Computed example of a mutant assay.
Amino acid sequence: MRIGLIGAGAVADFHVAAARAIDGASITAVCDIDEKAAERAAATAPRATAFTDYRAMYASGLIDGVVVNTPHALHLPMVTEAARAGLHVLVEKPMATTLEDCDAMMAACVEADVALAVGHIQHFMPDKLAARDLIETAELGDVVLIRDYRSTDYRPGSRSGWFFSPQMAGGGALINIGGHCLDRSLWFGGGRAVEVFASTVNRFDSAVETDGNIAMRLDNGVGVSISVISDPPLRADSLLVVCERGVIVADPRAGTSVQVDGKRRVVREPRPDDIQSAFTAQMADFVAVANGAEPAVPLEHARHVVELVLASYRAAEIGGAVQLEGAAVGAAER
Protein backbone atom coordinates (compact mmCIF):
# COMPACT_ATOMS: atom_id res chain seq x y z
CA MET A 1 0.00 0.00 0.00
CA ARG A 2 1.50 3.33 -1.11
CA ILE A 3 0.61 6.03 1.39
CA GLY A 4 0.71 9.80 1.14
CA LEU A 5 1.06 11.99 4.22
CA ILE A 6 -0.48 15.46 4.40
CA GLY A 7 1.14 17.52 7.13
CA ALA A 8 4.84 17.34 7.93
CA GLY A 9 4.53 18.55 11.50
CA ALA A 10 5.34 17.06 14.88
CA VAL A 11 3.98 13.54 14.33
CA ALA A 12 5.03 13.11 10.69
CA ASP A 13 8.14 11.16 11.66
CA PHE A 14 6.02 8.70 13.67
CA HIS A 15 3.82 8.03 10.64
CA VAL A 16 6.83 7.56 8.34
CA ALA A 17 8.54 5.19 10.78
CA ALA A 18 5.29 3.27 11.22
CA ALA A 19 4.93 2.66 7.49
CA ARG A 20 8.57 1.60 7.22
CA ALA A 21 8.00 -0.98 9.96
CA ILE A 22 5.05 -2.65 8.22
CA ASP A 23 5.38 -5.17 5.41
CA GLY A 24 3.42 -4.08 2.38
CA ALA A 25 3.22 -0.37 3.31
CA SER A 26 5.36 2.64 2.53
CA ILE A 27 5.18 6.42 2.52
CA THR A 28 5.61 7.41 -1.12
CA ALA A 29 4.59 11.08 -0.91
CA VAL A 30 4.54 13.86 1.66
CA CYS A 31 2.62 17.13 1.32
CA ASP A 32 2.95 20.33 3.31
CA ILE A 33 2.43 23.99 2.38
CA ASP A 34 5.94 24.51 3.81
CA GLU A 35 8.08 23.06 1.02
CA LYS A 36 11.15 22.61 3.21
CA ALA A 37 9.11 20.73 5.82
CA ALA A 38 7.66 18.47 3.11
CA GLU A 39 11.11 17.78 1.70
CA ARG A 40 12.54 17.05 5.15
CA ALA A 41 9.82 14.53 5.96
CA ALA A 42 10.00 12.99 2.48
CA ALA A 43 13.74 12.49 2.92
CA THR A 44 13.07 10.14 5.85
CA ALA A 45 11.00 7.83 3.62
CA PRO A 46 12.92 6.06 0.84
CA ARG A 47 11.90 7.34 -2.61
CA ALA A 48 9.10 9.60 -1.32
CA THR A 49 8.12 12.64 -3.37
CA ALA A 50 7.46 16.03 -1.75
CA PHE A 51 4.38 18.11 -2.64
CA THR A 52 2.99 21.49 -1.54
CA ASP A 53 -0.50 20.89 -3.01
CA TYR A 54 -2.46 17.92 -1.74
CA ARG A 55 -4.60 17.84 -4.88
CA ALA A 56 -1.47 17.40 -6.98
CA MET A 57 -0.44 14.55 -4.69
CA TYR A 58 -3.86 12.92 -5.10
CA ALA A 59 -3.57 13.16 -8.89
CA SER A 60 0.04 11.96 -9.03
CA GLY A 61 -0.72 8.24 -9.23
CA LEU A 62 1.90 7.70 -6.51
CA ILE A 63 -0.45 6.76 -3.67
CA ASP A 64 -3.24 4.33 -2.78
CA GLY A 65 -4.15 5.92 0.54
CA VAL A 66 -3.53 9.06 2.55
CA VAL A 67 -2.96 10.12 6.14
CA VAL A 68 -4.63 13.50 6.78
CA ASN A 69 -2.63 15.18 9.54
CA THR A 70 -3.75 18.80 9.19
CA PRO A 71 -5.72 21.54 11.01
CA HIS A 72 -9.13 20.22 12.02
CA ALA A 73 -11.30 22.31 9.71
CA LEU A 74 -9.37 21.03 6.68
CA HIS A 75 -10.30 17.42 7.32
CA LEU A 76 -13.60 17.59 5.43
CA PRO A 77 -12.31 18.75 2.02
CA MET A 78 -9.17 16.64 2.19
CA VAL A 79 -11.06 13.47 3.10
CA THR A 80 -13.92 13.90 0.63
CA GLU A 81 -11.56 14.78 -2.23
CA ALA A 82 -9.39 11.77 -1.37
CA ALA A 83 -12.47 9.56 -1.53
CA ARG A 84 -13.38 10.94 -4.95
CA ALA A 85 -9.82 10.18 -6.06
CA GLY A 86 -10.27 6.56 -4.95
CA LEU A 87 -7.89 6.82 -2.00
CA HIS A 88 -8.26 5.13 1.39
CA VAL A 89 -8.08 7.61 4.28
CA LEU A 90 -6.71 7.72 7.81
CA VAL A 91 -7.71 11.08 9.29
CA GLU A 92 -6.26 12.27 12.57
CA LYS A 93 -8.56 13.06 15.46
CA PRO A 94 -10.78 14.95 15.94
CA MET A 95 -12.63 13.48 12.99
CA ALA A 96 -14.00 16.94 12.14
CA THR A 97 -15.29 20.10 13.82
CA THR A 98 -19.02 19.45 13.19
CA LEU A 99 -21.26 16.40 13.05
CA GLU A 100 -22.34 17.41 9.55
CA ASP A 101 -18.72 17.21 8.41
CA CYS A 102 -18.33 13.78 10.05
CA ASP A 103 -21.40 12.52 8.21
CA ALA A 104 -20.27 13.98 4.89
CA MET A 105 -16.87 12.32 5.22
CA MET A 106 -18.38 8.93 6.02
CA ALA A 107 -20.92 9.20 3.20
CA ALA A 108 -18.21 10.19 0.68
CA CYS A 109 -16.07 7.18 1.57
CA VAL A 110 -19.05 4.81 1.42
CA GLU A 111 -20.06 6.17 -1.98
CA ALA A 112 -16.50 5.85 -3.33
CA ASP A 113 -16.04 2.40 -1.74
CA VAL A 114 -12.84 3.42 0.03
CA ALA A 115 -11.81 2.78 3.62
CA LEU A 116 -12.01 5.46 6.31
CA ALA A 117 -10.27 5.24 9.68
CA VAL A 118 -9.87 7.87 12.41
CA GLY A 119 -6.56 8.23 14.23
CA HIS A 120 -7.48 7.96 17.90
CA ILE A 121 -4.00 6.93 19.02
CA GLN A 122 -5.08 6.13 22.60
CA HIS A 123 -6.55 2.84 21.37
CA PHE A 124 -3.03 1.73 20.46
CA MET A 125 -1.01 3.05 23.41
CA PRO A 126 0.62 0.13 25.28
CA ASP A 127 -0.30 1.42 28.74
CA LYS A 128 -3.97 1.63 27.73
CA LEU A 129 -3.93 -1.78 26.05
CA ALA A 130 -2.46 -3.31 29.21
CA ALA A 131 -5.27 -1.77 31.25
CA ARG A 132 -7.89 -2.97 28.76
CA ASP A 133 -6.48 -6.51 28.84
CA LEU A 134 -6.70 -6.53 32.62
CA ILE A 135 -10.32 -5.38 32.60
CA GLU A 136 -11.23 -8.06 30.09
CA THR A 137 -9.99 -10.81 32.45
CA ALA A 138 -12.98 -9.97 34.72
CA GLU A 139 -10.68 -10.09 37.75
CA LEU A 140 -11.76 -6.60 38.77
CA GLY A 141 -15.42 -6.76 37.85
CA ASP A 142 -17.23 -4.03 35.97
CA VAL A 143 -15.97 -0.51 35.42
CA VAL A 144 -18.02 1.88 37.61
CA LEU A 145 -16.18 5.22 37.51
CA ILE A 146 -13.50 6.98 35.41
CA ARG A 147 -11.34 9.98 36.21
CA ASP A 148 -9.10 11.39 33.47
CA TYR A 149 -6.59 14.22 33.91
CA ARG A 150 -4.22 15.68 31.33
CA SER A 151 -2.00 18.70 31.37
CA THR A 152 -1.22 20.69 28.26
CA ASP A 153 0.17 24.06 27.21
CA TYR A 154 -2.21 26.47 25.52
CA ARG A 155 -0.24 29.66 25.98
CA PRO A 156 -0.14 31.60 22.70
CA GLY A 157 3.20 30.91 21.06
CA SER A 158 3.44 27.46 22.61
CA ARG A 159 2.07 25.79 19.46
CA SER A 160 1.15 26.61 15.87
CA GLY A 161 -1.13 29.60 15.46
CA TRP A 162 -4.03 27.65 13.94
CA PHE A 163 -4.64 25.94 17.29
CA PHE A 164 -5.88 29.32 18.58
CA SER A 165 -8.32 29.90 15.72
CA PRO A 166 -11.92 28.93 16.63
CA GLN A 167 -12.69 28.53 12.94
CA MET A 168 -9.69 26.40 12.01
CA ALA A 169 -9.36 24.34 15.20
CA GLY A 170 -13.04 24.19 16.17
CA GLY A 171 -12.12 25.08 19.74
CA GLY A 172 -9.15 24.85 22.04
CA ALA A 173 -7.86 22.47 24.69
CA LEU A 174 -11.07 20.40 24.88
CA ILE A 175 -11.35 19.54 21.19
CA ASN A 176 -7.62 18.87 20.96
CA ILE A 177 -6.30 17.35 24.19
CA GLY A 178 -9.77 16.66 25.58
CA GLY A 179 -10.52 14.64 22.46
CA HIS A 180 -7.99 12.07 23.65
CA CYS A 181 -9.61 11.99 27.09
CA LEU A 182 -13.12 11.60 25.70
CA ASP A 183 -11.97 8.84 23.39
CA ARG A 184 -10.31 6.71 26.03
CA SER A 185 -12.91 7.43 28.73
CA LEU A 186 -15.72 6.27 26.44
CA TRP A 187 -13.67 3.25 25.40
CA PHE A 188 -13.03 2.14 28.97
CA GLY A 189 -16.48 3.19 30.16
CA GLY A 190 -18.09 0.92 27.58
CA GLY A 191 -21.05 3.15 26.81
CA ARG A 192 -22.34 6.31 25.18
CA ALA A 193 -22.75 9.60 27.04
CA VAL A 194 -26.33 10.65 27.77
CA GLU A 195 -25.63 13.72 29.90
CA VAL A 196 -22.76 16.24 29.80
CA PHE A 197 -21.83 19.13 32.05
CA ALA A 198 -18.73 21.25 31.41
CA SER A 199 -16.89 24.42 32.27
CA THR A 200 -14.18 26.16 30.26
CA VAL A 201 -11.69 28.97 30.86
CA ASN A 202 -9.91 31.20 28.35
CA ARG A 203 -6.63 32.28 29.92
CA PHE A 204 -3.59 34.05 28.43
CA ASP A 205 -5.90 36.27 26.32
CA SER A 206 -6.58 33.22 24.16
CA ALA A 207 -9.41 33.15 21.62
CA VAL A 208 -10.05 29.48 22.48
CA GLU A 209 -10.41 27.71 25.81
CA THR A 210 -7.14 26.85 27.51
CA ASP A 211 -8.58 24.75 30.36
CA GLY A 212 -11.73 22.77 30.92
CA ASN A 213 -13.66 20.22 32.96
CA ILE A 214 -16.17 17.72 31.62
CA ALA A 215 -18.52 15.52 33.66
CA MET A 216 -20.48 12.81 31.84
CA ARG A 217 -22.95 10.09 32.63
CA LEU A 218 -22.89 7.10 30.30
CA ASP A 219 -25.93 5.06 29.33
CA ASN A 220 -24.66 2.14 31.42
CA GLY A 221 -24.42 4.28 34.57
CA VAL A 222 -20.65 4.84 34.51
CA GLY A 223 -19.65 8.32 35.64
CA VAL A 224 -16.77 10.11 33.92
CA SER A 225 -14.85 13.21 34.97
CA ILE A 226 -12.24 14.83 32.70
CA SER A 227 -9.91 17.73 33.45
CA VAL A 228 -7.58 19.40 30.94
CA ILE A 229 -5.34 22.01 32.57
CA SER A 230 -2.91 24.29 30.78
CA ASP A 231 0.58 25.03 32.07
CA PRO A 232 0.38 23.47 35.56
CA PRO A 233 3.53 23.10 37.70
CA LEU A 234 3.54 19.33 37.16
CA ARG A 235 2.82 17.55 33.87
CA ALA A 236 0.22 14.76 33.99
CA ASP A 237 -1.46 12.22 31.74
CA SER A 238 -3.35 9.92 34.07
CA LEU A 239 -6.37 7.72 33.35
CA LEU A 240 -7.86 6.22 36.52
CA VAL A 241 -10.41 3.43 36.07
CA VAL A 242 -12.41 2.38 39.15
CA CYS A 243 -13.75 -1.16 38.96
CA GLU A 244 -15.89 -3.11 41.39
CA ARG A 245 -12.90 -4.88 42.95
CA GLY A 246 -9.92 -2.66 42.20
CA VAL A 247 -8.51 0.50 40.65
CA ILE A 248 -6.31 0.80 37.56
CA VAL A 249 -4.07 3.72 36.67
CA ALA A 250 -2.73 3.99 33.11
CA ASP A 251 -0.09 6.63 32.46
CA PRO A 252 2.34 6.60 29.49
CA ARG A 253 5.11 7.99 31.69
CA ALA A 254 4.55 5.69 34.68
CA GLY A 255 3.08 2.61 33.00
CA THR A 256 0.03 0.68 34.14
CA SER A 257 -0.65 -0.43 37.71
CA VAL A 258 -3.56 -1.83 39.67
CA GLN A 259 -4.50 -1.87 43.34
CA VAL A 260 -6.70 -4.61 44.78
CA ASP A 261 -7.52 -4.84 48.49
CA GLY A 262 -4.60 -2.64 49.52
CA LYS A 263 -2.04 -4.41 47.34
CA ARG A 264 -0.50 -2.69 44.31
CA ARG A 265 1.09 -4.41 41.37
CA VAL A 266 2.61 -3.09 38.17
CA VAL A 267 0.96 -4.52 35.07
CA ARG A 268 3.25 -2.88 32.53
CA GLU A 269 6.33 -0.67 32.79
CA PRO A 270 6.75 2.19 30.30
CA ARG A 271 9.20 1.70 27.44
CA PRO A 272 11.05 4.27 25.33
CA ASP A 273 9.40 3.13 22.09
CA ASP A 274 5.80 3.11 23.36
CA ILE A 275 4.63 6.09 21.31
CA GLN A 276 6.20 4.78 18.13
CA SER A 277 4.76 1.32 18.70
CA ALA A 278 1.31 2.92 19.02
CA PHE A 279 1.70 4.73 15.69
CA THR A 280 2.95 1.54 14.07
CA ALA A 281 -0.05 -0.40 15.38
CA GLN A 282 -2.37 2.35 14.15
CA MET A 283 -0.80 2.25 10.68
CA ALA A 284 -1.14 -1.54 10.60
CA ASP A 285 -4.81 -1.13 11.51
CA PHE A 286 -5.27 1.37 8.65
CA VAL A 287 -3.71 -1.03 6.16
CA ALA A 288 -5.96 -3.82 7.45
CA VAL A 289 -9.04 -1.59 7.12
CA ALA A 290 -8.05 -0.79 3.53
CA ASN A 291 -7.99 -4.54 2.95
CA GLY A 292 -11.51 -5.00 4.30
CA ALA A 293 -11.09 -5.34 8.08
CA GLU A 294 -13.17 -3.47 10.64
CA PRO A 295 -11.31 -0.50 12.21
CA ALA A 296 -10.11 -0.73 15.79
CA VAL A 297 -11.86 2.60 16.38
CA PRO A 298 -15.44 2.46 15.04
CA LEU A 299 -16.43 5.50 13.02
CA GLU A 300 -19.50 6.04 15.18
CA HIS A 301 -17.23 6.19 18.24
CA ALA A 302 -15.07 8.86 16.56
CA ARG A 303 -18.22 10.79 15.62
CA HIS A 304 -19.51 10.54 19.20
CA VAL A 305 -16.27 12.11 20.46
CA VAL A 306 -16.96 15.14 18.25
CA GLU A 307 -20.57 15.17 19.43
CA LEU A 308 -19.39 15.30 23.05
CA VAL A 309 -16.89 18.07 22.45
CA LEU A 310 -19.69 20.16 20.93
CA ALA A 311 -22.05 19.21 23.77
CA SER A 312 -19.37 20.27 26.27
CA TYR A 313 -19.10 23.67 24.63
CA ARG A 314 -22.89 24.06 24.79
CA ALA A 315 -22.95 22.99 28.44
CA ALA A 316 -20.20 25.47 29.33
CA GLU A 317 -22.07 28.24 27.52
CA ILE A 318 -25.41 27.67 29.21
CA GLY A 319 -23.96 26.73 32.60
CA GLY A 320 -26.00 23.54 32.84
CA ALA A 321 -26.27 19.97 31.71
CA VAL A 322 -26.81 18.99 28.08
CA GLN A 323 -28.86 15.86 27.46
CA LEU A 324 -28.02 13.57 24.55
CA GLU A 325 -30.89 11.52 23.19
CA GLY A 326 -29.95 7.96 22.27
CA ALA A 327 -27.28 6.94 19.82
CA ALA A 328 -26.60 9.41 17.04
CA VAL A 329 -26.60 7.75 13.64
CA GLY A 330 -24.05 8.69 11.01
CA ALA A 331 -24.91 9.19 7.37
CA ALA A 332 -23.08 6.00 6.42
CA GLU A 333 -25.49 3.98 8.59
CA ARG A 334 -28.78 5.60 7.58
Rank of each mutant, 00 (worst) to 15 (best):
K128M: 15
S277R: 13
V322K: 02
Y54T: 07
E39N: 10
C102G: 00
A315P: 03
A10D: 11
D53R: 10
I226E: 03
A131E: 02
K263E: 15
I214K: 00
A296H: 13
G86S: 06
V68C: 04
V309R: 01
I22A: 10
Y149S: 12
A37M: 13
V247Y: 01
R47I: 04
S151M: 09
I177A: 14
L174G: 00
D127A: 15
E111P: 02
E317N: 10
G262N: 04
C102T: 00
A331H: 01
V306F: 08
G212Y: 08
F286I: 06
R2N: 13
A12Y: 03
P298Q: 13
V66D: 02
V118N: 02
V249C: 13
Q122G: 05
A104Y: 03
V16N: 07
M57G: 02
V143P: 01
V194S: 12
A38F: 10
Q167T: 15
V260Y: 02
A48Y: 02
D64L: 00
L310Y: 07
V297P: 08
E39Y: 03
R334P: 00
R265K: 15
A173E: 05
S158K: 05
T28W: 06
K36M: 15
N213G: 11
G161P: 03
A173H: 08
D113W: 00
R268N: 12
G189Q: 08
E111M: 04
I121W: 04
M1K: 02
V208S: 06
F124P: 05
E139R: 13
L90N: 11
I248T: 05
A316R: 03
